[in-house]
Simulated scan of single mutants.
Amino acid sequence: MNFNDKTIRRIGFVSLVAAATLGLEQPTLAQEPGFTPAPEAPTRQVSPAAAEDISTFERPSLIGACRATNRVVEIFADSNLSPVNRIGTFGPRTPVTLTGVLRQGRAQVYYRPSPTADIRVVGWVDAAFLTGCDQPPPVEQVCFQVLPANGLIAREAPNGAAQRTPTGLLDGPAGGSQVFSTTNPPTRQNAGSYVWMQVRYTSLTNATRTGWIAERLIGGGFNITPCN
């Protein structure tokens, strides 16, 4: 039997109709390792924090630079990393490429499963969770949750000067937020009446900062607790 284009298209259409009618399982696209897409949302939204213009800049020397995630990292459509605009999640040690467009504490990246594959996703991530592609896997950080409702003041050193935002406000992790130790096991030091821990936290400016927080009063209660 001779087949022309119309015959092939007709056969393909009939096959699809038959599959739908008989309830046959349709093939699904496999997800590439390293990236898990977020559940589909009806439309992307603009969060209140993203309603105003945001200052970003381009660094040509970083265009095309390779980076790797140093933990599970969420990727977002906007540089505020708004939960309503989450695109998906990268697994640890996933290679990504910088576009060269940056914001304080943020980096725009794209991901492709292999050097010859098409770009799979473009979005924004927290730059603190990126490392050089040729660097060894980092030690897993330890997660803690801040207990005081008013948060904690971060210090430049154990019992040292308080960290401040560019506008002069006292800075530190908010109550109920998560902080991550800079080492595993965490780096601790006694000073004054407290045991201090060096952590990375989300600043009042939404940037990731490193500082020292009072883990607990010596001989007293704790200000942080391990994440569940």
Rank of each mutant, 00 (worst) to 15 (best):
N159M: 07
M197A: 04
T131P: 05
T183Y: 06
E32T: 01
P48R: 01
I75G: 00
D118P: 05
D5S: 14
I119T: 00
A49I: 08
G91Q: 11
Y194P: 05
T131H: 06
R86G: 11
I119F: 00
T99I: 01
T36N: 09
P173H: 07
V73D: 07
S79N: 09
I213K: 03
E40P: 08
R10S: 13
S61V: 08
P115G: 05
T225R: 10
V14M: 13
W124T: 06
S203M: 08
Q135S: 13
G23Q: 06
L102S: 10
S114P: 04
T89Y: 01
Q26K: 14
P92V: 07
R103M: 10
A128K: 08
Q141M: 14
A65C: 10
M1C: 14
V195I: 15
Q145I: 13
I153D: 11
G23C: 09
Q31M: 12
T131D: 12
L147K: 15
R9W: 05
P137V: 07
Q45L: 06
F180Q: 10
L130G: 02
S181A: 13
A174N: 09
F180E: 14
N223V: 09
T56I: 03
D53E: 12
A117W: 00
P138K: 10
P95I: 03
P27H: 09
S55W: 07
T97Q: 04
C227T: 14
Y194D: 12
N190W: 14
R93C: 02
L24Y: 12
R216G: 03
L81M: 08
P226T: 12
P173S: 03
W196P: 04
R9Y: 07
P48I: 10
N228G: 12
G123I: 00
W124D: 06
S203P: 02
A18K: 12
R106M: 03
F180W: 08
I218A: 10
T7Q: 13
G176S: 06
L147W: 14
T97K: 00
V72Y: 05
D171P: 07
P60V: 02
P42F: 04
S47V: 15
T225C: 08
F3L: 14
A127P: 09
A51W: 11
A51Q: 14
G88K: 00
G160R: 11
F129R: 03
W124Q: 10
A38S: 08
L62A: 07
V84T: 07
G176F: 08
N150F: 13
F57E: 06
Q198T: 03
S193N: 11
A127H: 11
N85P: 13
E140L: 12
P166A: 01
I224V: 12
P37K: 00
T187G: 09
R44S: 14
A49E: 13
I213N: 05
F35N: 00
P39T: 13
Q178N: 15
F13M: 11
M1E: 14
A65Y: 10
T205W: 05
G105P: 00
N223S: 08
